[in-house]
């Protein structure tokens, strides 16, 4: 492409925060509480989103302890596109030391697109144990699934074309001020 890309903001910092608050409430409602719950972010941008969800869950329910119920799950080594998209350095995987057996794991990612990342995450998770259930929370669902995967909790559905890209800009990863965070579509 020779012309400069055009970007449109589809979520502001306040929109992102409201969406996460709603998702936190949805999780508590669906689980009837926060017992045996693990919130697990997929690097890179799923991790800060999971941490924020953890903080909101602790506000809603005193019994939720982010110290023992937050994790991150890297899926690099489980991807099916390593041969075509090149080697990437894996990010840390940190799961609660109590393990994931019998718990309900909520995977958190920024954008749900083809579903292949989540497929890889499900494979990775099964190598760490056998959760009672796995749920999926995403900030943005942009469609174009290539696998039979859907999200349980969605911040915002954003219809896109395959030629567009969705950019999630977060303070922790992109070094922005908190109120400058946004979700953009790049055409």
């Amino acid at each position: 492409m020779t012309h400069s890309p055009e970007t449109a903001t589809v979520m502001t910092a306040a929109d992102i925060d409201r969406a996460l608050t709603r998702i936190a409430h949805e999780i508590v409602e669906a689980q009837r509480g926060t017992d045996e719950l693990i919130i697990c972010g997929i690097p890179r941008r799923g991790v800060p989103l999971a941490q924020r969800l953890g903080a909101k869950l602790a506000d809603i329910d005193d019994s939720f302890n982010p110290e023992t119920s937050l994790g991150s799950l890297d899926v690099t080594m489980y991807r099916d596109d390593l041969r075509t998209s090149g080697a990437r350095t894996p990010e840390p995987t940190q799961l609660p030391t109590t393990g994931i057996d019998g718990r309900t794991v909520v995977l958190v990612d920024d954008v749900l697109y083809s579903g292949r990342t989540i497929r890889a995450a499900l494979d990775a998770l099964s190598d760490y144990g056998r959760p009672q259930a796995v749920r999926l929370a995403v900030l943005v669902d942009r469609g174009h699934r290539e696998l039979p995967i859907r999200a349980d909790h969605v911040g915002k559905n954003i219809p896109t074309s395959r030629t567009e890209r969705v950019g999630v800009r977060l303070a922790e990863i992109d070094g922005l001020a908190a109120d400058a965070e946004q979700v953009v579509i790049i055409r």
């Binding site: 080594m77 894996p90 190598d127």
Partner: peptide, 22 residues
């Protein structure tokens, strides 16, 4: 890149399943 990747690989030997499908 090799050292950072190796850093994550050290965790594999302490997992339940000591294998990656890569």
């Amino acid at each position: 890149a090799i050292l950072d990747t190796a850093e994550e690989m050290t965790a594999v030997s302490s997992r339940q399943v000591k294998k990656l499908p890569t």
